[in-house]
């Protein structure tokens, strides 16, 4: 695991900027998608914390996975994650990403997202309400500000382990190796 290092002033500024400006790439599967529009629009307005939706993975900071991932969609998520630019963070939204949730005995969904991608923060619930989504995002912001959200470093360092896990579930592995 990565130990907490002492940061210099530039790194502190970096982290502060990253924490105050979070661009979301929303990977919406199933029921999770419906909670995000109210989060973005007038009622809850996540933009007041500097959180905005991003157009493509290249521009995004956060990969927000809202619910169960089937084996087929996992492939896309991995590719989207690897196209994002560091520092990048993953949020698991809803119980399905934590332990399978109501799909705990499904034959074609993955149960623990943590095995395949480095999740920085979980937001539990089925489904979590916009309040808790924003709460989770703010929590992530605090972690980043403290310089402790190092999921992307973990992924780079333990790429072999993650790849092995990913290849274990995705039988027909045809992802190009050029991603990383």
């Amino acid at each position: 695991m990565i130990e907490k290092k002492k940061r210099n002033i530039f790194q502190i500024i970096d982290d502060w900027a990253s924490a105050r400006s979070l661009w979301l790439l929303m990977y919406c599967t199933g029921c999770g998608a419906i909670e995000l529009p109210p989060t973005m629009t007038s009622r809850y307005d996540m933009e007041r914390f500097g959180i905005a939706p991003a157009g493509t993975p290249r521009q995004a900071d956060i990969l927000l996975i809202t619910g169960y991932l089937s084996i087929k969609t996992l492939k896309r998520v991995i590719r989207a994650y690897e196209q994002m630019q560091s520092p990048k963070y993953v949020i698991g939204l809803g119980s399905c990403t934590i332990n399978g949730g109501m799909y705990w005995d499904s034959y074609n969904t993955i149960k623990m997202l943590d095995l395949y991608l480095p999740v920085d923060i979980w937001i539990a619930g089925c489904m979590p309400r916009p309040e808790s989504v924003i709460g989770g995002l703010n929590k992530l912001s605090d972690i980043i500000k403290a310089g402790e959200a190092n999921g992307w470093k973990k992924y780079n360092e333990n790429l072999k382990w993650y790849r092995a896990n990913q290849k274990k579930v995705i039988k027909k592995w045809d992802l190009p190796e050029f991603n990383y």
Binding site: R58, R76, R79, A80, Q83, D174, P176, F178
Partner: peptide, 15 residues
């Protein structure tokens, strides 16, 4: 440097 097919268009690899 990335290869030309490594684009952020879709998550499905294009060849």
């Amino acid at each position: 440097k990335v290869s030309q097919y490594d684009i952020a268009m879709s998550a499905e690899p294009v060849r």
